[in-house]
Amino acid sequence: MLTRRIIPCLDVKDGRVVKGVRFQELRDAGDPVEQARAYGAAGADEVCFLDISASLEARGTLVRLVEQVARELNIPFAVGGGVRAVAEAEALLRAGADKVSMNTAAISDPALITAVARLAGSQSAMVAIDAKTRGPGWEVRSHGGTRSSGRDLIEWAREAVDRGAGEILLTSMDHDGTRQGFALEMLRAVTAAVPVPVIASGGAGEPAHFAEAFDAGASAALAASVFHFGTFTIAAVKEACAARGFPMRR
């Protein structure tokens, strides 16, 4: 049986790991390669690198960092941030990334998703969506969450999958940094709307929150600060989820 995945996220800026509380106030929390290796040893099922400066500052790709991480890491990892063209995605995959995550660029040019999926297969084409409550539903935010895209979350998630996305990384802008738990209603709505795995992100504050996300349909759950600052361990999360009946790799 497919196990549910726990994914520590390393937000990277200028080659260092940072975590924005509500996407602001960045705190330095270490070297990306060291962190990835430590997370692998600690039982992470996968690691996610997001270059949070990329969309804001139009910086290039993380190819060198990806090469370094691939040398050290024996579990899968995704890389996102600044992926605007197929050639950039190809360079990241060739350097050792298992998946590339597309966000702002996919919104402005959805054909990018199809092109990456054609090249590398859907399982390597991840679409990251930052969403925020709007009216009865949710709207998609772009540019690191700073701009409204005008798109409805559910419509965009469906379109992304139709265009070839093999996984959706869904971040709640409302819950991110609050540690009050994942945005369960939003997760239920998205996992019901698309057939591909959905990764829950934003709001993890205690191990039980991960089990709640899986209960809401998430295939994987992602967190950053709770792991970086040692609030609890990945093993503790897996234990809590296994106790709730979810299959976990332990």
Partner: peptide, 9 residues
Amino acid sequence: VQVPHIGWQ
């Protein structure tokens, strides 16, 4: 079944 099949077994 969920497609793609992604994860650990």
